[in-house]
Nucleic acid binder design. Sequence first.
DNA 1: ATCGATCATGCAGAAACGCTACATGATCCG
DNA 2: CGGATCATGTAGCGTTTCTGCATGATCGAT
Lengths: 296, 296
Amino acid sequence: MIDLDALAALRAVATHGSVIAAATATGYTPSAVSQQVKRLERQTGVPLLERVGRGVMLTSQGLHLVTAGDRVLADLEELEADLQASTGRVGGRVRLAVFSTAVRGLVAPVVRRLRDAHPDLDLVIDEREPWDAVDLVAGGQAEIGIVHRWGGVELAVPDHVTSQRLARDVADLVVPHDHPLAARRRATPRDLVDVEWIATPEGTICRQWLRRMYDGTGATPRIAHVSAEFDSHLALVAAGLGVALVPRLGRAPLGPDVVAVAVRDPEPIRLIDALHRRTMSASPAVRAVLDAFAGG
Amino acid sequence: MIDLDALAALRAVATHGSVIAAATATGYTPSAVSQQVKRLERQTGVPLLERVGRGVMLTSQGLHLVTAGDRVLADLEELEADLQASTGRVGGRVRLAVFSTAVRGLVAPVVRRLRDAHPDLDLVIDEREPWDAVDLVAGGQAEIGIVHRWGGVELAVPDHVTSQRLARDVADLVVPHDHPLAARRRATPRDLVDVEWIATPEGTICRQWLRRMYDGTGATPRIAHVSAEFDSHLALVAAGLGVALVPRLGRAPLGPDVVAVAVRDPEPIRLIDALHRRTMSASPAVRAVLDAFAGG
DNA sequence: ATCGATCATGCAGAAACGCTACATGATCCG
DNA sequence: CGGATCATGTAGCGTTTCTGCATGATCGAT
């Protein structure tokens, strides 16, 4: 019998184009993915992957297996969702792939409420960057993804994944209380040409947005310090080491040493979406979690 | 994701009515089957099996899961068969569930020929009684079953399994060369009322047939000795310990001490059939094996 | 009513399976 | 031509899953 895990691995290779990309997307090592595909080839007796250059390509049969297997995988999942729907009760395991700051501000209280209301519900939280969360939901490693994207930045979502708006989160400029901008009601990028920034690490969405904010000005932001945690950002600002752009969601209370100033033109808005596979729409558990986010 | 092995276990419980029956049919221990079902319940969060009396019954949801899951399982297998068909080549693993005497006379030469002709074909032979072979093929533990049944004895085969006549095998009465019947061209059950039989063990099809042969006579066969191996039957006959009914298929050459006499009214004919799941019809490997049997 | 038979299931240990880490070979690019 | 990138083997480990046995529950027979 065809191993569905191995089939999912092959599908990941197909969608991501390489073994390494598939491995990072699914959370395995490249060796594991390679072995899974090989297992599939051994079980079926059909070559599915062929080396081309230093990469790989699916054979025509491998491609066929992925497209046809996709339907089987979807059927199976739909069956699972129907099954849970037939009980009417909320139960089973729901895995959430959530971006980091949402864990604190958005997810934690909702999860707590859900666990209390539905003792049979097994919620697992996995902290991930938005693009990884998309892959996890699309590939079946997670049921729900909580992702964010700043206004202009697009986030590609496959057809079989449904996106649902949860919230709009605004980021404020946070400056020391004795900073020249501290007294202002609002600030624009033009006001910020010469400031020193405390930013998130390269490769994060927040960092991308900081750069985009300067697009019209011809300048680039001057990054003085880098930290992944916004709490640390606040501490660094309080120490007078720079200014930061900190979203309100999940933000710790500002101390007396720092001041939040609204930013305009553009306004740093990030859109927070919930993702789930369409095949899971019938699951009461998934519905309950989505409703809890939307309602809360 | 639903574990397909566990789903197959649940299906076995559904078709066989009990955990123990399902376990013996699938070759697992009852504990393993029980744990598999429990795993499935944990994954889905839905109760599938409930105890009733000292046995179990599927819940309505469990029943739904089995019927719907059956289709997914069939789709997956059909996909596998199509995949192998797309290569046009004969390869992959084919498991044969074969009754014992067929291994020697029928299967061994065919398998040898197939292995030589198709190096990528991985043939696995599993010696089983016919009713077990039916379960194995129906449940997906084997691709092909080679079964036999004596004329009148029926063998229930599920809808999704296809049966194909391979051969008719005739059994002869084997007697010592100095036996009164040795000179006869043929014998009938009436000639055999008082003879002492060397028979196969209770519960085998051959034993059932021996009893049925006497149905019209009002007598029952007198069993003197029991042995599972027909080779041993010949040796026991040669030693003058009784007579035996030995099928020609896979029969060792008769020594000078014993004589084979044809039996009539009824003629001890057994029909040899090849079984395979309809979903595997498209597989070149399965086709090749079936053709090899039918053609040889 | 009681004892034995039958069935499912829990638990501890053992086997098997699949993954990680690391090394190797192949290919492409500067 | 050397470094970088990619896929894939191999050894070892960890987890999963099965077996063997014991327990609890139920039914039938005496």
